[in-house]
Amino acid sequence: MKITIIAGARPNFMKIAPIIRAINAAAKVGKNITYRLIYTGLKNDTDLDPSLFIDLDIAAPDAYLEIQSKNSIELAALILMAFDKELTNNPADVVLVVDDLTPTMSCAIVAKKHGAKVAHLVAGTRSFDMDMPKEVNRMITDGLADYLFTAGMIANRTLSQTGTDNKNIYYVGNILIDSIRYSRSKLIKPVWLSTLLPEKQEYILLTLNRRALLDNKKNLQNLISVICKSNLPIIAPLHPYVQDTLKKLQIDTTNLHILPPQGYLSFGYLLNNAKAIITDSGNVAEEATFLGIPCITLNNYAEHPETYRMGTNELVGEDPEALDRAMQLLLNKQWKTGEMPERWDGRTAERIIQILLDSEK
């Protein structure tokens, strides 16, 4: 079985790495399985720091499509053409795509045109908001997929209710947890952390990335002010454009420490040792649930509702008052105790590869 794996952005690699390790393990015991890893972006993409593939214990991509565009329609069109050439030159039995990006949808379309089967990793997530470009990507990709690998029963129900054949739906668990469990013993303490917090102080980890949140400057200022009222150190490893946005707010505080983005293992250390996490990232909320760390998400929506229905996550939207109430619960040690969703056990990749191998029999 020849599998082509698609990555469209840095976060995809955290979910792809366990799949690659499971393929290598299967091949090592004599299974007829190989993979080819494709990154749809640029080879010199600054998001793909050299340490990423070392940290994840995988090889760098076999090929780069070298496509970049801020216009989603143009991006889709360019990827369609580039991936068509890639699959023509390197045919695959299965094309595995991840999440809900434009490259995810585009490569799924090309795969079906080439007669390859499509495996969608993290299928069945929905916001039910058709104004979200990612929602369109999800629906198209799920509609084309031959294997729909889901992280929870909520996703299964969503797919069933929209007419997906149940025989194509596989509840395998959360692939992100595979990466956390694999890497947890190898986390790297950032060298600057002991200087910044010399007495091993408790801290809150803050991550921000969502453009809609950042564009509302006045509300963002109110949110950051609420966060900084805690008096705990706020460790905020942020991309340059987010740093610039926060600095322009000119918030007068001494406990907000804005830092550059961290490598995967260093960020994992900050995550693993935080008193609490405030984020707008679904992936970070999932990791927090696995680690049992209180998490406040600045969004009204979560890809995996399990994080707030069962786990340690709470959604406060972009509402400073809701954030303030959540912060009070956190600081008064009244945060709920989460529990682990079923099959978030670090063996998702093994299940996926076994299903693919069994389907060939």
Rank of each mutant, 00 (worst) to 15 (best):
M1V: 06
G8T: 05
A9W: 08
A9R: 11
R10K: 08
N12P: 00
P18V: 04
I20E: 06
A22W: 14
A26L: 08
K28T: 01
N32E: 12
T34P: 01
L37R: 12
G41L: 09
K43G: 04
L48M: 10
D49C: 03
S51F: 10
L52S: 01
D55T: 04
A63M: 14
A63Q: 15
Y64G: 01
S72H: 15
E74Y: 09
A77F: 10
A77G: 10
L80H: 12
N89C: 09
D93V: 04
D93K: 13
V95N: 02
L96H: 07
D100P: 02
L101A: 14
P103S: 07
T104A: 06
M105T: 04
K112L: 05
H120Q: 04
V122W: 06
R126L: 10
F128M: 08
E135V: 04
E135N: 12
R138V: 01
I140P: 00
A145N: 08
Y147T: 02
L148P: 02
M153N: 13
N156G: 05
N156Y: 11
L159D: 03
T164Y: 14
T164P: 00
D165G: 00
K167G: 00
N168M: 08
I175G: 06
I177Y: 12
S179R: 09
S185D: 14
K189V: 01
P198F: 11
Q201Y: 10
I204N: 02
R210G: 04
R211G: 02
A212L: 15
A212H: 13
D215Y: 13
L220R: 15
C228R: 06
K229Y: 05
K229G: 01
P233F: 10
Y241N: 13
L246D: 02
L256E: 04
S266R: 10
F267H: 08
G268L: 14
L270W: 06
L271A: 08
N273E: 10
A276L: 14
S281F: 14
G282A: 11
L291I: 03
L298T: 05
L298M: 13
A302N: 10
A302C: 11
G311Q: 02
T312H: 02
L315E: 05
V316N: 03
A322P: 03
L323N: 06
A326M: 07
N332P: 03
K333F: 11
Q334T: 00
K336D: 02
M340A: 05
R343E: 00
W344Y: 12
W344H: 10
R347K: 15
I355C: 00
L356Q: 03
E360C: 05
K361C: 07
K361P: 00
